[in-house]
C-alpha cells in the first residue's frame, strides 16, 4: 500500500518534471527574479564592486532585462559561470539567460541548441605580452607558452592561428580569468590570449598596466552576445528587444537623464513614442507592460551610456567604441525599427 503511494508520487513528480521545458517568461514572472549567468569576475563586464554588488557591461544588460520584465532592475540573481560551466547552466535551466562575453558561433547556435539574440559587443581575439619581452607581432610567438581559458572559442582560434602560420606554441589551460592573470604575471606563460576587451579589462587591474602591450593582430571575429535556450521564442524576443531598445535609445538620443521628460511630453518622433510606449502597444505584444523599454533604459542608461560607464575611454579599461559605434557613426550597431 505504502509503495503504491510512493510510486504514485513518483509518477506525479515525473509529469511535473516533464513540463519544465517552455515558458521562461512566465517562470521568471512567477519567480520574481531573473537568473542571469555572468562571468566569474571580469572587471568592466561582470565583477562585484566594493559593496558586493555585481557591476559591469554584461551585468547591466541582465539588469535591463529584469527591469523590462519585472520592473525592478535589482530583481536579478547572478550566477557566475566559467567557460566550461556556462552552457550546461543554461541548458539545464539553472539560468534564464547567459550574458558572459560569449561568442556567437554556428555550432553553439545550431548544435548546442541555444539562441543568440543579438550582439552586445563586437570583439576579436588578441594577445597580451609584457613589454619587456620585446615582441611586436603575434607571429613572433613561435615556441611561446600561452595561457588560455579552457572551454572557449579562443582555444580553437589559437590552434587555428598557429597552425595556419606554421609555428608552435605550448598551451597552458586555465579555468578562470583570475588564474590566467596569476600565471601570466608570475611569468609562467609568455602571453595571455582572450578577447581584446577581456585583455584590456584584465590589464586595467594590473599594478602597472603600461608594462604590458596588446599585440596588433586580431586573430578572430568574436561577436559577443546574450543567449537563451533554443525553442522558447517568447523569452528570446524579450531579451532581444530589450537589447535593441538600449541600442535604439542611443540612436534616438534617449538617455536615462531625459527619458522622464520624453515620456511626459511625447516628442515629435513617432519611433521614440513607440519605443517608450506613449504610442502603440509594443510592450503587451511581448507580454510585458507598456513602459517596458522605459524601465529597461532607466535601469542603467542606453547602450552608449553603459559603454562609457563601464568600459569606455574614461574608465581604466579604456576601450574605444570602434565597431561598437552606432551605424550612423560608422559602427555595426543597428537596431531594427520599433513598429
Amino acid at each position: 500500500m505504502k509503495y503504491s503511494v510512493f510510486l504514485g508520487a513518483l509518477t506525479g513528480a515525473g509529469l511535473a518534471a516533464g513540463a519544465v521545458a517552455a515558458g521562461t517568461l512566465d517562470d521568471v514572472k512567477a519567480r520574481g527574479k531573473v537568473n542571469c549567468g555572468t562571468n566569474t569576475g571580469l572587471v568592466g563586464f561582470a565583477a562585484p564592486d566594493a559593496n558586493g554588488e555585481w557591476q559591469g557591461f554584461d551585468v547591466a544588460l541582465c539588469r535591463a532585462v529584469a527591469a523590462a520584465v519585472l520592473g525592478d532592475h535589482s530583481a536579478v540573481e547572478f550566477v557566475s559561470t566559467t567557460g566550461r560551466t556556462r552552457f550546461t547552466a543554461l541548458a539545464s535551466g539553472e539560468i534564464d539567460l547567459l550574458v558572459r562575453n560569449t561568442t556567437w558561433t554556428f555550432t553553439r547556435d545550431v548544435d548546442l541548441k541555444f539562441t543568440f539574440v543579438g550582439v552586445n559587443y563586437y570583439d576579436g581575439q588578441g594577445f597580451m605580452v609584457p613589454k619587456s619581452l620585446g615582441v611586436t607581432s603575434a607571429k613572433e610567438l613561435d615556441g611561446a607558452t600561452i595561457c588560455i581559458q579552457t572551454g572557449t572559442t579562443t582555444e580553437l582560434n589559437l590552434a587555428d592561428f598557429f597552425r595556419t602560420n606554421n609555428i608552435s606554441y605550448e598551451p597552458v589551460p586555465i579555468e578562470t580569468n583570475a588564474e590566467g592573470q596569476q600565471q601570466y604575471l608570475a611569468g609562467a606563460c609568455d602571453a595571455y590570449t582572450t578577447d581584446i576587451s577581456g585583455l584590456a579589462a584584465t590589464r586595467a587591474t594590473f599594478e602597472d598596466p603600461t608594462a604590458h602591450v596588446i599585440l596588433p593582430e586580431i586573430v578572430s571575429k568574436e561577436p559577443l552576445g546574450p543567449l537563451v535556450r533554443h525553442g522558447d521564442d517568447e523569452w528570446a524576443d524579450v531579451v532581444r528587444w530589450t537589447l535593441f531598445a538600449l541600442i535604439a535609445a542611443e540612436e534616438y538620443g534617449v538617455t536615462s537623464a531625459n527619458i522622464d521628460e520624453l515620456v511626459a511630453n511625447p516628442a515629435s518622433n513617432p519611433e521614440i513614442s513607440r519605443l517608450l510606449g506613449t504610442e502603440g502597444d509594443l510592450g503587451p505584444m511581448l507580454g510585458l507592460s507598456v513602459d517596458w523599454a522605459v524601465k529597461a533604459i532607466k535601469a542603467g542608461g542606453n547602450y552608449g551610456e553603459l559603454f562609457e560607464k563601464f568600459i569606455g575611454q574614461n574608465t581604466p579599461i579604456g576601450l574605444p567604441r570602434g565597431l561598437n559605434a552606432q551605424w550612423t557613426d560608422g559602427g555595426l550597431l543597428y537596431a531594427p525599427p520599433f513598429r
Binding site: G83, R84, F87, A91, T107, R108, D111, L112, K113, T150, G151, E155, L156, P173
Partner: peptide, 9 residues
C-alpha cells in the same frame, strides 16, 4: 570531460 564536452555540448 572538459574541452570536448564544452566544444561539442
Amino acid at each position: 570531460g572538459g574541452i570536448t564536452l564544452n566544444q561539442t555540448g
